[in-house]
């Protein structure tokens, strides 16, 4: 009855592009990443646990996760404000401000690191001024947080912008007709619908902060137990040819990033979008 079951595709190039894409990804991404799991599997669980939970490592986790979380919260607030202002208000230099948002994507992290350090160190332009009111930024956890705010800002802004643009004016108009004030409209009508995107932007910034190395290594004091982040600790272990230690820590960080990635993917599903459009 069914003479021929096949799904012939009208557009050509399926086999070629599938073959090349999968081969390239496997050689460059999948196989190299798999070596981490291979390497860790040579450790017993006891060994792994011991390496991954020494006091120095625990302090580094606390700092990495804590600073990334704090920076992500700061970005959640300011990023949303910036996106809101850019989408809904008119003011001079708006286009320039908009273009500037992507600077952290485009500026090499090492450059960002040394210039942030210089500006916010105790004899820098802003640092000296802050020093006078008793705030030390460079070489403290606060400095790490600042670098992470720089790195994470575009994620929140670029996630929120399209969502704010797509808000239907009728929503607010209807609420206004029903007698709601601006505050009520914002908190009861607009904000509830924006939560998935806010959370997506927050997680993206957080995930990026966890792995960041280049900009932090300059502004952090890199002192064990106080200003040493996990990527730096991995780097130190590599320099000492302690591959086991480095891989164990890497695995912990990798699992954290994958969990976040999963969360972000399901969030953007929730927000009903095909893929998040924030560029890195």
């Amino acid at each position: 009855m069914v003479t021929r079951i096949q799904t012939k595709r009208a557009l050509p190039g399926f086999g070629l592009s599938l073959g090349f894409t999968v081969l390239y990804l496997s050689l460059l991404v999948l196989i190299p990443l798999a070596t981490i799991f291979l390497k860790v599997s040579t450790l017993s669980f006891g060994e792994f646990w011991q390496i991954a939970t020494t006091p120095r490592v625990l302090a580094a986790y606390r700092l990495s996760f804590g600073a990334s979380l704090a920076a992500a919260f700061i970005n959640l607030f300011f990023g949303f404000l910036v996106a809101w202002v850019l989408v809904r208000y008119r003011f001079p230099c708006k286009r320039m401000a908009d273009a500037l948002i992507d600077l952290p994507f485009a500026l090499p992290t090492a450059v960002a690191g040394i210039s942030l350090t210089t500006v916010y160190s105790s004899n820098g332009w802003l640092g000296s001024w802050l020093e006078r009111v008793g705030v030390k930024v460079a070489y403290t956890p606060l400095g790490i947080c600042l670098a992470l705010v720089f790195i994470g800002l575009p994620f929140v802004v670029r996630t929120m912008q399209p969502v704010l643009e797509e808000l239907e004016p009728e929503l607010e108009e209807a609420a206004a007709c029903m007698g709601a004030g601006r505050g009520q409209i914002f908190f009861r009508v607009l904000l509830p619908g924006l939560w998935p995107s806010l959370l997506t932007g927050f997680s993206l910034a957080f995930a990026r902060g966890l792995g960041e190395y280049g900009s932090i290594v300059f502004i952090a004091g890199n002192l064990p137990f106080s200003t040493e982040i996990v990527p730096l600790l991995i780097m130190t272990k590599l320099d000492q040819f302690d591959y086991k230690g480095a891989t164990a820590l890497a695995l912990v960080m990798l699992l954290a990033s994958f969990t976040l990635m999963l969360l972000i993917n399901s969030l953007s599903h929730l927000a009903g979008k095909k893929s998040h459009r924030a560029e890195v």
Binding site: M1, R4, I5, Q6, T7, A10
Partner: peptide
């Protein structure tokens, strides 16, 4: 020819084109 049928034949000008690309 943008979609292939699961069964059946298509003839154009007396020529069977079922297996031809668009």
């Amino acid at each position: 020819g943008l979609i292939a049928p699961e069964s059946g034949r298509v003839k154009l000008q007396g020529k069977d084109v079922t297996d031809l690309p668009p």
